[in-house]
């Protein structure tokens, strides 16, 4: 088929070159090109690449998101104290400025890479990719990515994580899921943090917080905990261990399948 006489127009693509079609070219040289691609295609591509990195090394990647000050770093410190001996953990920290959070994490003997975003309000897949190259993934079981404290922007950027965990600290109010639907719709797990303050707050209902989450059609579990007192931490740690085991299992099966394919191939 040539490209000049129109013989490459088939019944399958004819609608595209008809007047008004996506590839129609008018006399004035105007041409409409159909793209139908996600605006963040480039980010999603890098995120998939990051996920591949994590999978190759059997590393569970958890993206922690919340408002500023909801207790992400405190949760990580408490988690490292409890799981640090059994599992090899690293943390990628996202903040607009300072190394403060990374230094807090390093004091627990865990590698931490600080990404300072300048004025950017979120981490993207490229920033995480750069940080991954500073970590020895082969020596790790879990990477926690502590996103920039913000309930709006980080929700739009896939980083290559296996799970999104969102903290909602009880002083923030139980209607946060209703106010930030994009963020809370993305949650695989919601942690109600600083629950040791609940007796002081007469306006936070854990049931209401759960109901707001269900109204976003999100079936994610909701755990109540306090990193400070340790209450409720066991449920969270069990969840992390379970996710880690499930990832190992999934990757193990994948490896067996590939191996089986390779041995049965002619």
């Amino acid at each position: 088929m040539c490209d000049t006489c129109g013989c490459n127009v088939t019944p399958g693509n004819a609608h595209l070159v008809k007047p008004g079609g996506a590839l129609h070219r008018t006399d004035d040289g105007r041409e409409a090109v159909s793209v139908l691609r996600n605006l963040l295609h480039e980010n999603d591509h890098t995120a998939a690449h990051n996920r591949q990195h994590f999978d190759q090394h059997g590393v569970l990647a958890i993206n922690l998101m919340s408002s500023p000050g909801a207790g992400k770093t405190a949760l990580l410190e408490a988690t490292i104290k409890r799981l640090g001996k059994e599992l090899s953990i690293a943390v990628i920290e996202g903040d607009l400025e300072t190394e403060n959070d990374a230094e807090r994490i390093r004091q627990h003997g865990v590698p931490a890479i600080q990404i300072t975003t300048g004025s950017a309000c979120h981490l993207d897949a490229h920033m995480v990719h750069d940080a991954l190259h500073q970590l020895d993934l082969a020596a790790l079981d879990i990477v926690f990515i502590e996103n920039v404290g913000n309930l709006v922007c980080p929700a739009s950027f896939d980083l290559g994580q296996h799970a999104n965990v969102i903290l909602l600290s009880v002083p923030e109010g139980d209607d946060k899921p209703a106010k930030y639907p994009v963020m809370f719709r993305a949650a695989d797990l919601v942690l109600l943090s600083k629950c040791d303050l609940l007796p002081l707050l007469d306006d936070f209902s854990t049931d209401k917080a759960r109901r707001h989450l269900r109204e976003l059609a999100n079936p994610a579990e909701v755990f109540e905990l306090s990193a400070r007192t340790g209450d409720g931490m066991t449920q969270w740690l069990d969840w992390v261990m379970d996710r880690e085991a499930r990832l190992e299992h999934r990757l193990g099966e994948l490896h067996t399948d590939n191996h089986a394919d390779a041995t049965t191939a002619p």
């Binding site: 040289g29 090109v33 793209v35 139908l36």
Partner: peptide
Amino acid sequence: DEMLLERVEVICEKSTPAQARGVL
């Protein structure tokens, strides 16, 4: 939940066979 680039309209100065192939 879409953020989709659906279509781009461009002006081409001259159409060449090579471009037409690329488009289709």
